[in-house]
């Protein structure tokens, strides 16, 4: 998969995963890397941008077994952005699918 295409959609992936429930970094990265081939280290810079923009947020949870874990959660503005991006993605991918399947103009 092309890097540019992936980069553009990774934000939607991260926001969507966090919309369902809070995740810690390793978990989140693994959910994405299970679906597509990515360089895992590149997710963290993206998450930092999302955090700086106020779309996501983090908190620390002490763990009985191991070291404390930093969890990420989505903010209200992040939820809004996710919804916008999701509908954009759906209409975009529908259009591309139509084009690829040769359905353009045939209604």
């Amino acid at each position: 998969m092309q890097t540019q295409l992936k980069r553009g959609t990774l934000e939607l992936c991260v926001l969507t995963i966090l919309c369902r429930c809070d995740r810690y970094g390793y978990e989140l990265v693994n959910i994405i890397s299970d679906c597509m081939h990515i360089t895992e280290g590149t997710i963290y810079p993206l998450m930092k941008r999302l955090k700086d923009a106020g779309s996501i947020d983090s908190y620390i949870v002490e763990s009985q077994e191991g070291p404390p874990r930093k969890y990420y959660r989505i903010t209200e503005s992040g939820r809004k952005i996710q919804k916008e991006q999701e509908s954009e993605w759906r209409s975009f991918s529908e259009a591309i699918n139509k084009l690829i399947n040769g359905e353009e103009g045939s209604k």
């Binding site: 810690y24 390793y26 280290g41 070291p67 874990r69």
Partner: peptide, 22 residues
């Protein structure tokens, strides 16, 4: 913490490093 997660999941340090990339 990513390394902690990898260790907890039984991944070797070399594997985690390789997946994280350059």
């Amino acid at each position: 913490q990513h390394f902690d997660g990898g260790a907890a999941a039984g991944e070797s340090e070399a594997d985690v490093c390789a997946k994280l990339g350059d």
